[in-house]
Nucleic acid binder design. Structure first.
Length: 480
RNA sequence: GGCGACGUAGCCAAGUGGUAAGGCAGAGCUCUGCAAAAGCUCGAUACGCCGGUUCGAAUCCGGCCGUCGCCUCCA
């Protein structure tokens, strides 16, 4: 079954056909590294993580480029976001950039996000940006005004095709336009003249200055993926003006189509309001990870379709945590049972269910990465797996392997929900030995019907974060 | 005001013409010394509201109401 993708450019679900069979070039707008990443960033980059993982799972050779914006992204006050932060904490701008870049990767690593193949920085690609601006001027799509350069949107006939925003023809003669350096209010900056106090500055044909925000993505996408490539991603909140301007610049400069498929991720809201730096209502990824394991945050994000907005509430993460616990509990149990499982294929009646679940999962993912539906396939499977594993009947090693494999591949490799191995106890043989000793002592107490002692052992271990479960074939433990 | 999404059980959420997936929460039951875990049973005569098309609509069309995003920095 072919993969279908909802292409925002054209607003329809389309068969995904890469330019080169088996190879996918993908560019995703990265963060402005000026502050700690929050759950909104997590939603966007976890969504593309799932997309990249799935493309690779299906055999595609993906080149994943995600930029880091470290210059040019201005506040509406006209200040550079990085410079403002640097002044606040009395640091060099590049210290700020480095600090938050490292923090960003720390967070993404913690969430299990596969790193992009290339993470180009805007400040490292100023020559490429200048060159593209020169091309645009030469072709009549841009003009210089007082040391700055602007893109003339009236020269891009398609301007607005992604966001469905059309240029207001009558707006061209408005008072604002006359007062401004810009010819039309919709024109956007490609290059900004640096005021004397502006630290981040580069030499250019138009004097000292710095690049605008949009041009970096056009220049870096071209450098690493070529003028035309397969997928461009980002958050929907950047559809205008950022993504729209990227298209205009790139297509006018290169005389070629820009990205062929546009995938945009819905925003994360908190109590119905978008989580954003400017509103100050954000929860950092670091804080969220203090409360929940990374798999739970992934579960939360993937429980809605990537294109939908998702509202964050405390209960929604708790629901994700509980749902994840059941899913992972089945895997953990299968792994534990594998340790002393009989050879043979006892319990192989589950195998057709495994195939069915795999088909349902892949069909859901092929349908525009429908992760909620894919997870549902795993959850339905989990019911049957739990029934088998808790039936008390012997289950052969091969069957347990098959069960573990489907969770590892679909739940783990694609969605990152299932840890590769159960780490509980694995990092401390001494701890495992001590807990085993207590379990044995408790078993003796239970045998003697000394329930006061057995319950005390269970309760006190629970207080230490070790949960005991009595099963027909013995007591197992896990950490919470 | 313009542009774009969306409104499905207490909550989250899938479902684009054929008679409402899945999860969380809740209740009861089985299992257990008691628990925990797991499983079973129970929930929308109904998909914001009103019309229309159709043999048939949550799904298509029109109108209305409401929510959110963008239009200005944001993933």
């Amino acid at each position: 079954m072919p993969l279908k993708i909802y292409n925002v450019l054209g607003r329809e679900k389309q068969d995904f056909v890469p330019l080169e069979p088996g190879r996918v070039g993908m560019y995703v707008c990265g963060p402005t590294v000026q502050d700690y990443a929050h759950l909104g960033h997590a939603k966007t980059y976890l969504s593309f993580d799932m997309i990249v993982r799935y493309l690779r799972f299906t055999g595609c050779d993906v080149l994943y480029v995600q930029n880091l914006t470290d210059v040019g992204h201005l506040l509406d006050s006209g200040e550079d976001r990085i410079l403002k932060k640097a002044a606040q904490v009395q640091a060099k701008p590049m210290q700020i950039v480095e600090y938050y870049t490292r923090s960003y990767f720390e967070d993404m690593d913690a969430l299990g996000v596969v790193r992009p193949d290339i993470s180009p920085r805007a400040s490292g690609h100023v020559p490429e940006q200048i060159k593209m601006i020169e091309t645009l001027i030469a072709k009549g799509h841009a003009y210089e005004a007082n040391g700055s350069v602007y893109f003339d949107v009236t020269t891009a006939p398609d301007y607005g095709k992604l966001s469905n925003r059309r240029i207001e023809t009558q707006a061209a003669g408005s008072r604002e336009a006359v007062r401004d350096e810009k010819r039309h209010p919709e024109d956007f900056a490609l290059w900004k003249k640096a005021e004397p106090e502006h630290i981040l500055r580069w030499e250019s044909p138009w004097g000292e200055g710095f690049p605008g925000w949009h041009i970096e993505c056009s220049a870096m996408a071209k450098k690493y993926l070529g003028p035309t490539f397969d997928i461009h991603g980002g958050g929907v909140d950047n559809i205008f003006p950022h993504n729209e301007s990227e298209i205009a610049q790139s297509e006018c400069a290169n005389d070629a189509d820009f990205a062929r498929y546009w995938i945009l991720v819905g925003s994360l809201t908190v109590d119905g309001i978008k989580m954003s730096k400017s509103l100050g209502n954000f929860i950092t990824i670091k804080d969220a990870l203090k409360q929940h394991r990374p798999e739970v945050i992934r579960m939360f994000v993937y429980s809605a379709h990537y294109s939908s907005p998702v509202d964050y509430t405390g209960e929604s993460l708790t629901a994700a945590a509980n749902g994840w616990e059941r899913l992972y509990g089945a895997v953990r149990l299968a792994r534990q049972m594998k340790n002393d499982a009989p050879e043979g294929d006892a319990g192989n009646a589950i195998l057709p269910r495994l195939d069915e679940a795999r088909r349902d999962f892949l069909a859901a993912m092929d349908d525009d990465f429908n992760s909620p539906k894919a997870i549902a396939a795993l959850q339905e499977l989990t019911r049957d797996v739990n029934t088998l594993l808790n039936s008390g009947a012997a289950v052969g090693r091969g069957v347990l392997e098959a069960i573990e494999t489907i969770y590892r591949e679909l739940g783990g490799d694609v969605l990152g929900l299932i840890p590769a191995a159960d780490t509980a106890g694995g990092d401390s043989r001494r701890e495992a030995g001590l807990i085993g000793l207590l379990i044995n002592l408790r078993a003796e107490a239970r045998k003697n019907r000394d329930f006061a002692t057995s319950d005390r052992i269970r309760d006190e271990l629970k207080a230490l974060g070790v949960i005991l479960e009595d099963r027909p074939d013995g007591t197992v433990w896990r950490t919470n």
